[in-house]
Structure formats: C-alpha cells, structure tokens
Nucleic acid binder design. Structure first.
Length: 293
DNA sequence: AACTGTTCCAACCGCCTCGGG
DNA sequence: GCCCGAGGCGGTTGGAACAGT
C-alpha cells in the first residue's frame, strides 16, 4: 500500500515537474498574444488555468490573466498619464495608500500595474530626491501644496488657451480637467487627514465623461465614468514637463514672496518655511483654488 | 563608438481571500 | 469546519531602452 502511494506520489510529482518544465516564462510572443486574444474573443475570459490549457498556451493561468488585463485588453490605455490622471492618482493615493487596484478603478483604461509603476518611478523618485519618505508629512505637503496645485494650474491654462475664455465650474469645455483637479486639490487640502466630511461637490458633463466627487467621502462617493477626453483635459502632459514645473515651483517658493504658498507650513521642506510659523490648518478651499486661477 | 549608469515597465512572486466540495 | 483551487492584490525584479560620459 505504502509502495503504491509512494509510486503515485512520485508519478504526480514527476508530472508536475514535467508540466512545470513545459511552462513558458518571460516576455510574451506575438503568437501567444494572438492565441490568447482569439481564445478570449471566442470563449470569454475567466477560469484562467483552464483557459490557458484549452487555448494551448504553455503559460500559467495567472500569467494569462495578467497579460490580458495589463496589456491585451482592448480598452487598455497606453502612453503618458494625462495631468488629470496624475492628479487623480495623487489624490486617491492620499486617501487610500497603495490600493492600486482600487485607484485603477477610477482611471478608466489604466491598470493597477501601470499606476503602481508610475508611483514608484515618478512619485517615489521625488521623495528620494527630497530625502524623505513618500508617506511622510513633508512629502504629502509637497504634493498638496506644490505639485497638485501646479497640475491644476497647467490644466486650467491649457483649457483656457483651448477655449479662449475664462472657465467656470460646470463649464463643459474645461470641466473635465480643471474641475476635477480643483476637486482633487481641495480634497487634499481641505481634508488633510482624509477623514473630514465632504465639503464640495463637482460634476463633469457626460460629453467628456462624468465625474461626481463628494470630497473626502469614501469610494462610494467618487465615480469616474466614460471616456477620457484629452482635448478638454488639456491633453497629454509628459511627466517630465510636470517634473520640471514641480521643481521650478520648488525653487521659486519663498516664505515672504507674497506667492500662493506663503501661508502653508511645509515643515522644513522649503527652505525658510519653518520660520513662517503659519498654521497647517490654514488650508485652501475650492473657492481659493479658483481665486488662484 | 564603446562603455556605464539610469529609467521604465512587463512580468513574476508570494500572500491573501473567497467560494465550492 | 476544513481543504483546495482560482483569482486578486501589492511588492519586487530583470532587462530593454535611453542618456550621459
């Protein structure tokens, strides 16, 4: 009996090892991609292990799922993150932390993997250069008071240029970017600990997708739908541009220059700010964002 | 042109949760 | 209640592409 069991066990192990050895790893080939796409278009997705076998792919189910979700899905959006998306990521990350899939749900066409990579390569790079942790109050302040407002500013400028007029809240021509961004910044600034009640509501017209965001609420209160209209959001902003703006702003800010950021305590991050002694509670409202514009 | 360092991202890994038996 | 497989998630890594010297 023991011999039989042992024999079966070793047979199973051998089969597993054989199967393991047959499994492919590493980059996907065009043929594999086509096989997966064709199979899913015929049979649908799900049951990934069975799918991988049935499709004749020598890949694990996990690998197939990942390839499909992160790369082959028809609605996957590629290329640089728009300023809209960047600020939304900053905002949502400030609420939820490294909940990438949750954040990705609010960025149509973007995958959790892509957002995660963005965060690690771009955002964490800034933190490293500042010699602080991304989770530190210093870096959060830098995001809230410098990076995010700057994104709003740039989006607004692009929208204004595109439409030749002063935007207003609810104005479809600029609402997708500016309103959302104002929302995001207002969220980050008005609710620094992410637990304050909602104080502002914004909306975006259906023509450019719709956003209804009740600030500082839980995820049930924030909905992002529809397309991502780059023409109304100011178009693609290569991250490098934003980085340059970020650092340009960083270098410009002085505590006594009468600038936009003078009333905020940045806890030692911007040279001289520690001397200002202003209260961190003195935060922006949505109205202030618009005054800023 | 050759080499080195850096950046970026696709893919993998391990862990966790959930549902069915 | 327990076990097991599938799916999902966040963290990490390998290597191609690019930039700088």
């Amino acid at each position: 009996m023991d011999v039989v069991l042992q024999s079966r066990s070793s047979n199973n192990m051998a089969a597993e090892q054989e199967e393991e050895a047959e499994l492919r790893r590493g980059p996907w080939t065009v043929d594999e991609d086509l096989t997966l796409i064709n199979y899913i278009s015929d049979h649908g997705e799900g049951r990934w292990n069975a799918l991988a076998r049935a499709a004749g792919l020598r890949r694990t189910g996990k690998s197939c799922r990942l390839r499909w979700l992160n790369y082959l899905r028809p609605d996957v959006k590629r290329g640089n993150f728009t300023a809209d998306e960047q600020l939304l990521i900053l905002d949502l990350h400030s609420r939820w932390g490294n909940r990438w899939s949750k954040i990705a749900q609010h960025l149509p066409g973007r995958t959790d993997n892509e957002i995660k990579n963005y965060w690690r390569t771009r955002v964490q790079k800034h933190a490293k250069q500042l010699n602080c942790d991304v989770g530190s109050p210093t870096f959060k302040d830098a995001m809230r008071y410098l990076w995010m407002p700057r994104l709003v500013e740039r989006i607004h400028a692009a929208a204004t240029t595109a439409t030749g007029g002063e935007p207003s809240i609810g104005d479809t021509s600029c609402a997708s970017g500016v309103t959302l961004m104002a929302t995001a910044v207002a969220t980050a600034t008005a609710c620094p600990e992410n637990n304050s009640p909602a104080s502002a509501v914004t909306s975006r017209s259906a023509s450019s997708g719709s956003i209804t965001s009740e600030l500082c609420g839980d995820e049930k209160n924030l909905h992002v739908h529809g397309n991502d209209d780059k023409t109304t959001s100011g178009g693609d902003w290569p991250m490098q541009d934003v980085d340059q703006e970020f650092w340009a702003m960083h270098m410009q800010i002085q505590p006594d220059d009468g600038g936009l950021f003078q009333d905020h305590e940045l806890s030692g991050w911007v040279q001289g700010f520690s001397d200002v002694g202003v209260s961190a509670d003195n935060l922006w409202s949505l109205e202030d964002i618009w005054k800023m514009q």
